[in-house]
Design a binder for these strands. Sequence first.
RNA 1: GGCGCGUUGGUGAAGCGGCUUAACACACCGCCCUCUCAAGGCGGCAUCCACGGGUUCGAAUCCCGUACGCGUCACCA
Length: 483
Amino acid sequence: MAIRTRFAPSPTGYMHIGNLRTALYAYLVARKDPEGVFILRIEDTDQGRLVEGATDIIYDTIRACGLKHDEGPDVGGNYGPYVQSERMKSGIYKEYAHKLITRGGAHYCFCDEEMLQARREAEGDSFKYDDPCKKLSAEECEKRIAEGAQYVIRQTIPEGQTSFDDEVYGTITVDNADLDEQVLLKSDGFPTYNFANVIDDHMMGITDVVRGMEYLSSTPKYNLIYEAFGWDIPRYIHCPPVMKDEHNKLSKRNGDASFQDLVAKGYLPEAILNYIALLGWSPEEDREIFTLDELVQAFNVKRIGKVGAIFDPEKLKWLNGMWLRGMDLDSYYKLVKPYIDQAVKRDCDRRKIAEIVQQRAKTLAEIPEMLGFIDEFRSYSNELYNHKKMKTNPQIALTSLKAVREVLEAQEDWSTEALHDTLMALPAKLEMKNGQVLFPLRLAITGEQSGPGGAMEVASILGKEETLRRLDLSIAQLENEAE
RNA sequence: GGCGCGUUGGUGAAGCGGCUUAACACACCGCCCUCUCAAGGCGGCAUCCACGGGUUCGAAUCCCGUACGCGUCACCA
């Protein structure tokens, strides 16, 4: 039987990184099977918590990541509808809830909610409700309902123990006495998440349930429902949380970065996905760079860890840099063009700029600030010519800069290669080290001690006129100070 | 509080009883390369796997206990 997994988010806001990772794992589990099916289901039973536009964020995110789903609200499928509020319209949850009563897996409860709330508060942590309604006869229940009594349907927990195997956490056994007789159908006729989730997973033929480990504790209750219906219990893959620090989960509430925040900061969806795959899962081979397809190949549920992993922005940054540098120049240029345009208004070779930036930028967002020197030649101190490793100081700089100026004045071809040829001939002639000529030149035309590109690259980008202009200014500044 | 799960460096982690003097990667620190920065190369960075007991010729690896952390106990998802 083909594997069917689902990603079932609630449209209550942003796409959390932890959420996205769960989606990724669900996707990978499905794709691991050539026949596998990955489904998107929107769980919006709690109408009060819905957030406008949240569903679109979900679509946008999984699309940007390439987590293509085979079935879902937007693409259809044979198990629809794929939005819970729509499924509700057919009354299936209510129907199943009543069916569960006849099978002994649930019962009507007429207890007052406020009374329960009050008792919970009075009795504190140890509160566990032993519902007297369980003992009501079917006739009694029908009578009360006919009289118009408000009711909910609660799960009936049998005596004994419940045990199941989780692919990540192993065998888990609990005493049924510790399980709560939770509400399955609310008094408004809507199902609770717990119930709708089970019904939907079954109706959609989900074979592998991939979700956060916060559901580990309630899984026995779900299994009791499956058993009461006589349904097959799916395989469970509970994932450890993605943490912000030792104690807190990553969450939008704390202002932690969401997927779209990261993209806005100049991270590649591929890199983000690649990075989060590594949080809580480790590949067999000693490797860290993976495309989505490669992840499908390498993924193995058995290598998902049990411990929450702290999200490390530094490592994401490194990985993003790896992805950026790994791109071919054409795609890279297309990608960074807007960022270059943002910083550079001057007429110059943007492709060449992309080239020098590609080897250095770790995120797209840092590109504009790297390029400030191109449009603006800021004033700088002659102090900067003192550089121990380059063995330069203002005096040496002045000497070599004058020689450079002379040579460049005559230079016609401003390609990096041509500039390279003429400039590299200079140090020998002046009996200087390369750095004593080129470092001052770089500084003289950028005004910065460090930055992207070498002297000839920068000169080539700036063009002859601007290069000479800056050179003159710098030489003048040095001569001024020398006097 | 009950129940469940977990605990290897600053971080992600490998490790599944001897091959571990605890991989690999990020970060950090050196050095090298180099016209700066970055990239790259090389090296350093856990006297030790939460702690305490056991089992064993031998334990990060198995067992028990303690501590700590997380999750869960809603007509939320």
